[in-house]
Design a protein around this nucleic acid. Structure first.
Lengths: 157, 157
DNA sequence: CCAGTCAGTTCTATTTTGGAACTAAATAGT
DNA sequence: ACTATTTAGTTCCAAAATAGAACTGACTGG
């Protein structure tokens, strides 16, 4: 199976990765959350080639994650801004970064610290159940298959 | 900059993506969380070529995310199991999948539903501050730069 | 008219991936 | 003893994606 066909799979993770799972794309999003908006700035900060950056920004736009907005006419210049859908990916960025903070930081410590404004402490991100408010671990979750794809996704049945 | 050098950047997200950011790797992890352990099963479920799968499993193992454990001698056969470090990536998988559930599901609805055992409801995953227990949104976070990399990561300073 | 800015596009060489076939180390059946 | 089967890979080559550099277009400012 080709990577470009994974969005056809009955899997929300695969479908999401079809938009944000290419090389560099999640780093582009990190920069978006840090306030970067312009092509030149993404390119300089990431060191990605312009041609790949152009492709990634287009896919993020097509996926509804970024909006292309003119910030100047004559000559027209456009910048990229996170949409509400895009901001919903923040927990993904935070958990990936936190994993790196925890397991991959050197002697100097993590490059960035995220502070929770409300309590003033460094964020120790956890997964929370929106219904009951409790902290959730992997073993607290049971998975149910949509009957439409019965037997196609889960193992042991 | 080459993708294989991103682990050199002062960015925990980049360092994490150097391990899990290749094509197919997060889908391998999804399957791990669904209980898949064996090479043949990953290969069949994902449709990834054996040669790429082999490479991804090796990188996950080197990154301490999977353990390669013999489940049989004569002939020796090994399977892959999530480590504690690996299980810490669960929130990443859940939030990516939930984003797909929310924005990319078709008429049939999401392929899988995750149920929180403790409350019995479908999980609506949120980001939680481990210190104060509150739900956290992107705008609730302020970022501080490690002085070691002063001025290298943040913009506007 | 010339240099500079910004957001790309185009070009070629290198790297990665996809698809298929092949290998190794056994066991089970005839 | 020979043959097929199982499982976990490796090897090979063509096709696709990426890296790096140069180029384009639409202006502005001097």
């Amino acid at each position: 199976m080709r990577w470009q066909d994974i969005d056809q799979q009955p899997c929300s993770l695969a479908r999401t990765l079809a938009i944000v799972g290419d090389r560099w794309t999640l780093l582009v999003l990190r920069d978006c959350f840090l306030g970067v908006r312009r092509f030149e700035q993404f390119q300089e900060r990431l060191g990605v080639t312009r041609h790949v950056l152009s492709d990634r920004l287009r896919k993020l736009q097509e996926g509804g994650i970024l909006d292309k907005v003119a910030y100047q006419e004559r000559p027209r210049r456009e910048e990229y801004r996170l949409t509400a859908r895009g901001r919903d990916l923040y927990p993904v960025i935070v958990h990936l970064a936190q994993w790196g903070d925890t397991y991959l930081a050197g002697e100097e410590g993590p490059p960035l610290v995220r502070i929770h404004r409300q309590c003033g402490e460094p964020l120790a991100a956890q997964l929370q159940c929106g219904h009951c408010g409790e902290t959730v671990a992997a073993r607290d979750i049971r998975v149910e298959e949509n009957p439409y794809w019965a037997g196609e996704i889960l193992i042991n049945n």
